[in-house]
Amino acid sequence: MSATVAAPTQESADRWDPVRELPPSAKLVAKELDRHDTLTQSQLAEVTLLSTRTVRQAVSRLEEVGAVESRVSFRDARKQLYTLTL
């Protein structure tokens, strides 16, 4: 008995096109934002094990290509909440 793995659909493959040429750190941040709805920079650093500086640069690159959206946290206005928009 063998299990078949479904090939990714064209739609799901195209979804990640904006981040394909970005550095691995940006791809990792995007994948974590895909797994979690919304995260802060410190939460992203915690789940990715990247430095906050690297996360900040990754988020900037993702925002440049329109893959991430940020908004101010209602709980703590000093923090930004990041959401994947792909």
Rank of each mutant, 00 (worst) to 15 (best):
R56H: 14
H36Q: 14
R35L: 12
L50W: 03
V55P: 06
L50Y: 15
R35K: 13
D34E: 14
Q43R: 13
V55G: 05
V47S: 03
T54N: 06
R56Q: 15
T48L: 01
V47F: 05
T40P: 05
A30Q: 09
L22K: 00
D14A: 14
T48C: 15
A13Y: 09
R35P: 03
P24I: 03
L33Q: 02
A13K: 11
Q43I: 03
L22Y: 05
W16D: 10
L44P: 06
D14P: 04
H36I: 05
R20H: 02
T52K: 12
A13S: 12
P18C: 00
D17T: 09
R56K: 12
V47A: 05
S51H: 09
R35S: 14
W16V: 11
D37Y: 10
A45E: 03
L44I: 09
E32A: 06
A45T: 06
D37T: 09
L39V: 02
T40Q: 01
V19D: 03
D37W: 06
L50E: 11
E32M: 13
D17W: 05
E32R: 13
S25W: 03
H36P: 05
L39A: 07
L50D: 02
A26P: 08
D34F: 10
P23V: 02
L39S: 07
H36C: 12
T38H: 00
R53Y: 11
S42Y: 07
D14N: 15
H36Y: 15
E32Y: 10
D17R: 14
T54K: 12
T40E: 09
D34Q: 13
R15M: 03
V47Y: 05
V47G: 08
R15A: 05
D34G: 11
T48Q: 06
P18D: 00
T52F: 06
T38F: 00
P18F: 00
T38A: 00
L39F: 02
T54Q: 14
D37K: 10
E21T: 11
S51A: 15
R53C: 04
L22M: 09
S42A: 15
A45P: 02
T40I: 02
L33E: 03
L49G: 12
P23M: 07
D34S: 12
T38G: 00
P23K: 10
R35M: 11
L39D: 00
L28Q: 11
V29L: 04
L22A: 07
P23R: 13
T48I: 01
L33H: 08
L44N: 08
R20W: 07
T52Q: 14
S42C: 09
D34M: 12
K27M: 00
R53E: 13
A26D: 01
A45Y: 06
T48M: 07
V47I: 12
L22H: 02
R20G: 03
R20P: 02
K31H: 11
L28H: 05
R15N: 02
P23E: 11
D17F: 01
L28F: 01
E21P: 07
T54C: 11
H36M: 10
